[in-house]
Each structure stands twice: as C-alpha cells, then as structure tokens.
Design a protein around this nucleic acid. Structure first.
Lengths: 197, 197
DNA sequence: CTCTTTCTCTAGTGACCGCTACAGAAAGGA
DNA sequence: TCCTTTCTGTAGCGGTCACTAGAGAAAGAG
C-alpha cells in the first residue's frame, strides 16, 4: 500500500505537528488559540496547515481524537482492568491527580477545558458529548458492580457517576489553578470516602 | 449629598446596565463577550459604556464585584449561619445545586467559568484569587469545627476544603452541560457522604 | 529534458476586535 | 439668551481574526 506520492513531498512530520497543535489547544483552549499560534507552534506556514489538516475546526477534531487516545484512555483502562468499581475509580482518581499535574504537558484535561466559553457550537457540543459519554461509562461500570452484588442495591448509579465526573472536572480546574499533585491526591482520597459501603 | 450634576444627564440606568453586562459575561465569559455584545445587551452605545464604566477590564471587575455580592454570597452565609461545618456545607451544596440551575440567570458560576481560556492575565488572576479565597474560607470553617471537637483531629482541613471546592467547580461545569437541579443535588448528597464521621 | 502533481511562501482578503475623535444634544448657571 | 459641562451617536482608528489566491519549488513520470 502507500504508493509513492506524486508531487512535492510534505516538508514536516504530520504527527509531530499534530502533537504540537494538541499542546497549544490544551494550553489555551479552542478559541483562544489562533491560527498564528498554531503555525508558530507547529513550525509550518498557514497554507501548509490548511492543506494538511483542513480548517481550524477539523484540525481541532483530529486533535481531540488523538488526545482521547493518547491522554484520555487511562480512565477506561483503570475501570476495565481493576476487579471492582471501587478499585477502578480509586485508581482512576489517583492517576487523574498525577496526569493533571504532569509537567510534560499542560495541566488539567483538554476535553474539560478547551471549549469553555466557546462560541463555536460544533466544538462545544463535540466536547460536551465526550464528557457525557465518559460519565455514562462510569455509570455502566457502577451498574455492573451492582449486578454482581459488589455494590449495594440502593446505590444511585447515575448520581454516583455524576459525582465522580464532578470530582474529575473540579480536579482539572484546580490543576489549572496551580494545585499540586499531592493536593489533588487529597481530593481523590476525600472523594473515595463517599464511596458506598 | 449628590448635588445636581452639571451637564447632560445620563440617559440610561447605570445599575440596570451593569446587571445586563453581568448576564452577558456570565453567559459567555470575559473574552467571548465583545464590546458589541455588551452594548447590545446594555442598550447603550460604545462611548456611553466607556464613559460610564471605563474599559472592558474595568467593567468586568465591577461586574465581578457586583456578582459576588448578589449571587456569590449565599455560601459564606450558609457557613456563617449553620451551627456546624457539616450543616453549613450541606446547605451550601444544596443551595449551589439550586442556584447553578436557576432559570432566571445563566447556569453555573461566573467566577469559575468566565476566565477559563482567558488570555488576559489580570482577569484570569483576579478570578483565580477569588476561587482560592473561597477555598481558604472553607478551610477556616473546617478548622473552627476541629477546634471545638465537632470534627475529629485527624481531619485534613486543606484536603477537605479543596474537595468541597472541586465539587462546586464540577457542579458548575455540569450545570453548564445541562444537568438538572435534581442531578446536581444528587452530586451534593454523594459528596456529603465523604464528610468525616 | 519536459510535463504533471503537490507542497510552500508571500501577501493579502473581508470581518471583527477594543477603543475613540468629533460633532451634536441636553442639562445647569449666569 | 448664551456659555459651560456632560452625555450620545456616527463613523472610523489600527490590529488581529480565520482563511486563501497565486507564484514558485520540489518531487515522479515520460
């Protein structure tokens, strides 16, 4: 496959450029990151950006997809790999505290932050849908443990899932406000005290 | 006092205009709300806005101060009036669930939302400082109950205060994402299960 | 070599941004 | 009445926004 291209070859690494665009959007959000910011960060000219990635919205959609795979999959993995919902969410929140303050990339969560105060409805909706899908995933993991009797039958799975979602969103904001990883771990520990007996 | 003004009198109600500016900033955030958005919402021309309120940053500062008094004081009141920290925070979170979804104004919290992805450092810092001051207030209320023995001595007041702050910030985001008041009350109830025994 | 294809660079497009100069309108003071 | 003061409306400032036309550069095909 991948027969040799005909014309002049691209002069930059598309994946590396996408990664740099991800960092820019992650740091500053969708609207606040200008095309000039992006071309500066990616080290290419505007026409190259448009030829390789389409317009700003399309580039952002690709960034979000790449981000979800690279940086947003640890939570689903924790819920999947741990034997109980309790253990899964405890691990998820601990890893969240670490990832949200990891100095190798911007703080907090791109899917939570990047479309706040966003006047472009497609972008706003796309990220909201991902957040809602995450919470729905939390709820189904909780329901699974209720089915096995691991969680008591009077558990409110929707409320508990939303609670975890709220904690993660709050941790993202506090990471942006400068909270340390240890402080976020304290929030995670406090949250797990709310777990049903 | 208030001697009669000399020149042509102002043709609009300054307080009503400020309230409308508050709603606009609350709904769309600082950067996303343009001067044209503001003059449209306030029903005045740009020169009148600048004459009455200074520039955009100064207007926003006045909006934030007015917002803090009008819409942001219920929390401090709850902590002040209830006999215990537990009762105070339970009331605070219940009122938060109601206020964040009150249909008479935009959803969530202006101090939490309006400066996310904000490229103007003064605005960003001003709101961050208010958020940190709120959490510091939570911590001192918790310490007061530790001093009376109402809360156990092994309580981590900083972590508990940050936890409550994270919950409120998460509730604000979820209110913006369309969560009902009942759903937010569920989050508040779940959070209170984390309260120290 | 020439021809075709594809990318890159320069230099801009119209639209909107925060903000304001200026002239006219509406009040009090003399 | 006329002057001073203050506000309002028009109209536009320079700057940045997302985006692109057009020309040249760099590759393969013949």
């Amino acid at each position: 496959m991948a027969t040799k291209q005909r014309g002049r070859p691209r002069s930059f690494d598309r994946e590396a450029a996408l990664e740099r665009a991800t960092m820019a959007f992650w740091e500053h959000g969708y609207e606040t990151t200008s095309i000039t910011d992006l071309t500066d960060a990616m080290g290419i000219g505007a026409p190259s950006l448009y030829a390789a990635f389409g317009d700003k919205k399309t580039l952002f959609a690709e960034v979000v997809e790449s981000y979800a795979v690279r940086y947003g999959s640890f939570g689903a993995r924790a819920l999947d790999e741990e034997p109980t919902a309790r253990a899964g969410f405890a691990r998820l929140l601990t890893e969240t505290a670490a990832v949200f303050t990891d100095p190798s990339h911007p703080r907090g969560c791109l899917m939570i932050c990047a479309a706040v105060n966003c006047a472009t409805p497609e972008v706003d909706n796309a990220l909201r849908e991902r957040r809602e899908a995450n919470i729905a995933g939390f709820e189904s993991r909780i329901r699974a443990d209720m089915a096995t009797g691991e969680l008591p039958p009077d558990t409110d799975p929707s409320a508990l899932a939303r609670f975890i979602g709220a904690i993660i969103q709050g941790m993202s904001q506090q990471a942006r406000d400068g909270a340390t990883g240890a402080a976020l771990q304290g929030v995670a520990d406090a949250a797990m005290h709310a777990w049903p007996a």
